[in-house]
């Protein structure tokens, strides 16, 4: 079999162009290097990717800000200083403490914003990991074996797909908040962040698993798979050594999309009380607290809301750039 089988069709473009310039044919430019070159030219996508990176960095450094600049923790209530004579929270100030104002019980919003961001990003990342790992394994197994395995997995995808996202989210949220989750080896308590991450992760599996399965159905009929089989490779080696690299670009394209949706879903579930539970802060719970304070103190809602929109927008624009770079002919179809 040819070495190029793993590399898909992209790799034919660049050597031609280079030869025209009179250079030696290079040892071969992989599809990812090509994609990176295309991405590097897309300044807008890079800028938004950078924005996302900065926001993540700020949230990671939350304890530094809390201890060394604001000198207050995310759950410290300071009613004397942070509420005005009507009992309403103060707005943004020019001091290090209460830089973005205070919330309804006198907690520093800037500090909570960063700690809340840690929860939101953590849940988003965990949910994305769960979705991607299971969707990849199930999608490849279903597409590769077809028959009963495919029948079972595809039906399961179909079932989860049919549930409206937020209805399934609150149903699972209610049940798991009551009972916790017993995974045999370890037990997760009802108000752990992981519960929310698992719920969101499971809900999005079919959205990624179905397209991967579809792609594998086509790949398994190709010559390089026949060749691998003739060489005597086992099913596992073929699935994860031969097929997986060929669906890798689909997987990469889906990561930012799932991450953005997971963060939004966390916020939505937290808003209706089926996600992150107090005293844990997340952007969703902060917006929700702010909405309840509404006519009086708009900043309690606007600050976390804008932060959330900027983060998700950063992921989405960067993800769009990544898709254009990896898949310039838009062959990977994303429905919904």
């Amino acid at each position: 079999m040819s070495d190029g089988a793993v590399g898909t069709e992209f790799s034919t473009e660049m050597p031609e162009a280079l030869r025209a310039e009179g250079e030696e044919l290079p040892p071969g430019i992989g599809p990812y290097k090509l994609a990176w070159r295309r991405l590097r030219r897309n300044k807008v996508a890079l800028a938004f990717g950078g924005l996302f990176f900065v926001l993540v960095l700020m949230c990671v450094l939350a304890p530094v800000y809390a201890n060394d600049i604001a000198h207050t923790g995310p759950n410290d209530e300071n009613i004397a200083k942070a509420l005005n004579q009507y009992g309403l929270p103060i707005g943004p100030t020019w001091h290090a403490k209460f830089f973005l104002g205070a919330d309804g019980v006198g907690r520093d919003i800037a500090v909570r914003l960063l700690y809340g961001g840690r929860s939101s990003l953590e849940i988003g990342a965990e949910a994305t990991l769960i979705t991607m790992v299971f969707a990849t394994i199930l999608g490849i197994v279903a597409g590769y074996f077809r028959g009963p395995a495919d029948g079972f997995i595809s039906r399961a995808f179909e079932l989860i797909w049919a549930y409206p996202v937020y209805l399934l989210g609150i149903a699972l949220g209610v049940v798991l908040a009551i009972s916790g989750l017993d995974l045999g080896l370890f037990k997760i308590g009802g108000n752990s962040l992981l519960i929310t991450a698992i719920i969101i992760g499971v809900i999005y599996i079919p959205y990624v698993g179905k397209p991967i399965r579809g792609q594998v159905l086509g790949l398994r009929e190709r010559e390089f798979i026949d060749a691998a089989r003739q060489q005597g490779l086992g099913h596992l080696r073929i699935m994860f050594g031969e097929i997986l690299p060929n669906v890798a670009s689909t997987i990469i394209v889906f990561i930012p999309l799932v991450l953005a949706n997971a963060i939004l879903t966390e916020a939505g579930l937290s808003y209706v009380g089926a996600g992150v539970r107090p005293p844990n802060a997340s952007w969703g719970t902060m917006i929700s607290d702010g909405i309840h304070l509404l006519p009086a103190a708009v900043h309690t809602m606007l600050v976390p809301g804008i932060m959330l929109v900027l983060t998700v927008l950063g992921i989405n624009v960067f993800g769009d750039g990544v898709r254009d770079a990896l898949d310039p002919r838009a062959r990977i179809r994303i429905d919904h």
Binding site: L264, G268, L294, V317
Partner: peptide
Amino acid sequence: SLVGVSTPVFFLGAVLAY
């Protein structure tokens, strides 16, 4: 459309309502 899909509906709703 990217801004649209990046804005949580309840935040947009709360801002509009306010």
